[in-house]
C-alpha cells in the first residue's frame, strides 16, 4: 500500500478529485486516529489553532455529529450552522453566508448542501479548506472512505474483491462516491436495485448492473445496503415499500441461501424491514456499528491532513 504524508489537494470536494495514493494516505492516518479514539483520553491537540465551521444546508444527524466529534477530538474550535436557523431563510446567497463566516477567521468549512457542485463553486471563491459532507445526489466522499476503510479491515486489500451496492442508486450520493472510491482501489463493483432506481449509463463508471438480488449476493464478498430515499422521490419510482422489501430487501433467509459469509454494511439511517431486515442488520457478519466508529477516525484523518495543506 503506497501512502505519503500529505494529500494532493487542498479540499475534499469528492472522491473524483483525489488520487488512489490520497486514499491510502487518509487510511494510514485514520488507523493512527483509531488508536487515539480508543485511548482513555480520546483527544489530541493537533488542530488547537484551527477553527472549523460545520455548514449544514440539509438535515443530518450522524454525519454532523461524527464531524463535530472528529473536530473536537483534534481540539479544533467548532462553529455549527444549520440553514433553517440562519439568514439563508432571509434570502442571503451561499457566497455571502460563507464570506460572512470566513470574516470571523474560520480556517475550514465542512458543508452539506442540496445542490450538486456547491462545494466546487465555493472552492473557486474562498480561501479556506472545504470538505464535502454531501452535495445533493452527487457525492459523499467521507462516507465512501469510511466504507472502504471498514471493508479493508475485514477482507484486506480490495483489489479484485467483489462489492455489491444494493438499493436506491439513483438518488444516493453514497453510491456514486462508493463506486468511484472502490474502483480506484481496484474492486469489482455491481449495483442492484429496481430498474427505476438505477441511473442510465451507470455502466460507464465501470460497474455491472444486476436486477436479481439473490444472484447479486451470491457473487459478492461485501454487500453495502443503501436506504430508499423517500425524501428525494418526486415521482413514484416503486409501487410500494412492501413490494421493494419483497424483491430487494436483504434478509436472513436470503443470506442463508447464499451459503457463504458476506460482510453486511449500511451507511444509515436504517429502515428496518425495508431495505434490510433486523436479523440481517444485526447478524454476526454485519459491520454497521464499526462503520460508525471508523467514520470518526476517517474524518479526523481528513481534517488533520487538509489542515496541514497551505
Amino acid at each position: 500500500m503506497s501512502q505519503g504524508s500529505q494529500l494532493s489537494t487542498k479540499h475534499l470536494l469528492g472522491i473524483k478529485y483525489i488520487t488512489r495514493e490520497d486514499i491510502f494516505t487518509i487510511f494510514k492516518a485514520a488507523t493512527d486516529f483509531k488508536e487515539v479514539i480508543n485511548r482513555p483520553i480520546k483527544k489530541v491537540p493537533s488542530l488547537r489553532d484551527v477553527t472549523i465551521v460545520n455548514l449544514f444546508f440539509e438535515n443530518s444527524t450522524r454525519t454532523r455529529i461524527s464531524f463535530e466529534l472528529a473536530e473536537r477530538r483534534l481540539t479544533a474550535d467548532v462553529l455549527n450552522f444549520t440553514a433553517s436557523s440562519s439568514s439563508v431563510s432571509k434570502g442571503e446567497t451561499l457566497l455571502d453566508t460563507v464570506n460572512n463566516i470566513l470574516a470571523m477567521k474560520v480556517d475550514m468549512v465542512v458543508m452539506r448542501h442540496p445542490a450538486p457542485g456547491a462545494h466546487v463553486f465555493l472552492a473557486n471563491h474562498i480561501d479556506a479548506n472545504i470538505i464535502n459532507a454531501g452535495d445533493g445526489t452527487h457525492e459523499h466522499p467521507t462516507q465512501a472512505l469510511l466504507d472502504a476503510f471498514s471493508m479493508m479491515e475485514v477482507i484486506g486489500n480490495l483489489e479484485g474483491k467483489n462489492i455489491l451496492i444494493v438499493g436506491d442508486i439513483l438518488h444516493s450520493r453514497v453510491a456514486l462516491s462508493n463506486i468511484l472510491c472502490l474502483k480506484k482501489l481496484g474492486a469489482n463493483v455491481t449495483v442492484c436495485g429496481p430498474p427505476t432506481l438505477i441511473p442510465k449509463h451507470i455502466e460507464s463508471l465501470g460497474v455491472r448492473v444486476e436486477y436479481n438480488i439473490l444472484e447479486a449476493l451470491k457473487w459478492c464478498d461485501v454487500a453495502n445496503v443503501l436506504r430508499i430515499q423517500l425524501e428525494r422521490q418526486d415521482i413514484k419510482y416503486i409501487p410500494s415499500l412492501r413490494e421493494y422489501a419483497m424483491y430487494y430487501g436483504v434478509t436472513r433467509d436470503l443470506l442463508d441461501k447464499v451459503q457463504k459469509p458476506i460482510v453486511i454494511m449500511h451507511p444509515g439511517p436504517i429502515n428496518r424491514g425495508v431495505e434490510i431486515s433486523s436479523d440481517a442488520a444485526d447478524s454476526e457478519h454485519s459491520i454497521i456499528l464499526d462503520q460508525v466508529e471508523n467514520g470518526v477516525a476517517i474524518r479526523m484523518a481528513v481534517l488533520y491532513l487538509l489542515a496541514g495543506k497551505k
Binding site: 505519503g4 500529505q6 493512527d32 489530541v44 489553532d49 489542515a307
Partner: peptide
C-alpha cells in the same frame, strides 16, 4: 499529533504507530 509546529511545516509529518 502533539507537535506544536504541525501547521508551520511545509510538509506534514507522517505519523507512526
Amino acid at each position: 499529533f502533539y507537535r506544536d509546529d504541525y501547521r508551520h511545516r511545509e510538509k506534514p509529518l507522517k505519523a507512526s504507530s
